Computed example of a mutant assay.
Amino acid sequence: MSYALPPAGLPAQSDKLTGTAVFTEAYAFLPAGVMRDIVTSFIPNWSGTRAWIIARPLSGFAETFSQYIVEVAAGGGSDRPENNPEAEAVLFVVEGQLDLSNSAGTHVLQEGGYAYLPAGQGWTLHNRSDAKATFHWVRKRYEAVEGLLAPEAFVTSDAENAPIAMPDTHGAWATTRFVEPTDLRHDMHVNIVTFQPGGLIPFEETHVMEHGLYVLEGTAEYLLNRDWVSVGPGDFMWLRAFCPQACRATGDAPFRYLLYKDVNRHAKLPW
């Protein structure tokens, strides 16, 4: 399995400005070409590490999560990666190899490796290989519910979980689920959605969940609010609640994206 990565570097001075990045009241579209060295950030308590912060809570927009693409040089990592004891996380490795230690033990995460890390439980992450490693880091403030135990940490991978076809789609649209939808302990899902060539979302989805969608491979035409946008490997779509969306997979290879959504909790009230 091959996953898209930020191009990094800088475009040549001879390149023409032809980007399609856009930020609207309903969605943001960050094409892969804007993920360059100049927009990376550094994070306290990490060594040999830089991050593309592609989503963060914004008042009046998407408010529940942040998402980073983190590049860790050989020998880099952190013994104190998270400074917020209320933050839960999902890690998804798209390049290289990382050593994770947490309450579930010590694990080597290869490409496609996936880890869920509960809030308030310490963990460490290091790149002990000779090559750089890259992973997605999705963070959310965990919403505890009286009478529900907090979920446990777990480690799995893309390869270990077969996609589940959506009803009545004959396998053209499928979801790799890393958490059972009926497990109400979890207040977020980070899944992988796969469309076979020609597969589609045949209606305008409009719902309370916020989304982050990072294209891992393939191409599609994606409806964002009123706009059909051509998307491909490394592009990121960021949707606020109720933003209409639909999809038509193009090309001759599967279209796959990493999907965040907030789930299983009451809507917050302003009093």
Rank of each mutant, 00 (worst) to 15 (best):
His189Lys: 05
His189Trp: 02
His189Gln: 06
His189Tyr: 06
Val190Ala: 02
Asn191Pro: 06
Asn191Lys: 09
Asn191Ala: 06
Asn191Val: 10
Ile192Met: 08
Val193Leu: 12
Val193Pro: 11
Thr194Tyr: 02
Phe195Gly: 07
Phe195Ser: 00
Phe195Asp: 03
Gln196Phe: 05
Gln196Asp: 10
Pro197Asp: 14
Gly198Trp: 07
Gly198Leu: 13
Gly198Glu: 01
Gly199Arg: 02
Leu200Asp: 07
Leu200Ala: 13
Leu200Gln: 12
Leu200Thr: 11
Leu200Ser: 12
Ile201Thr: 06
Ile201Met: 02
Ile201Arg: 02
Pro202Ile: 10
Phe203His: 14
Phe203Cys: 14
Glu204Trp: 01
Glu204Met: 01
Glu204Gln: 06
Thr206Lys: 15
Thr206Gly: 11
Thr206Asn: 10
His207Ile: 03
His207Phe: 00
His207Trp: 03
Val208Glu: 15
Met209Pro: 00
Met209Thr: 07
Met209Lys: 07
Glu210Trp: 09
Glu210His: 06
Glu210Pro: 12
Glu210Asp: 09
His211Thr: 04
His211Lys: 09
His211Gln: 11
Gly212Val: 10
Gly212Glu: 01
Leu213Glu: 12
Leu213Cys: 11
Tyr214Pro: 12
Tyr214Glu: 10
Val215Arg: 02
Leu216Phe: 11
Leu216Asp: 11
Leu216Asn: 04
Leu216Met: 14
Glu217Gln: 15
Glu217Leu: 13
Glu217His: 12
Gly218Ala: 03
Thr219Gln: 14
Ala220Cys: 13
Ala220Pro: 01
Tyr222Asp: 08
Leu223Lys: 02
Leu223Met: 05
Leu223Gly: 03
Asn225Lys: 15
Asn225Asp: 15
Asn225Cys: 15
Asn225Ser: 15
Arg226Tyr: 13
Arg226Ser: 02
Arg226Trp: 12
Arg226Ile: 04
Asp227Asn: 13
Asp227Ala: 07
Asp227Met: 11
Asp227Thr: 15
Trp228Tyr: 00
Val229Pro: 07
Ser230Gly: 13
Val231Arg: 04
Val231Thr: 08
Val231Ala: 05
Val231Pro: 01
Gly232Glu: 02
Gly232Ser: 08
Gly232Tyr: 08
Pro233Arg: 15
Pro233Glu: 14
Pro233Ala: 15
Pro233Met: 09
Gly234Arg: 01
Asp235Thr: 05
Asp235Ser: 15
Asp235Val: 07
Phe236Trp: 14
Phe236Asn: 07
Met237Tyr: 10
Trp238Phe: 06
Trp238Val: 03
Leu239Lys: 10
Arg240Gly: 14
Arg240Gln: 14
Phe242Arg: 08
Phe242Tyr: 10
Cys243His: 07
Pro244Cys: 03
Pro244Val: 03
Gln245Ile: 08
Ala246Leu: 02
Cys247Pro: 07
Cys247Leu: 13
Cys247Ser: 09
Cys247Val: 14
Cys247Gln: 11
Arg248Leu: 13
Arg248Lys: 14
Arg248Asp: 01
Arg248Phe: 00
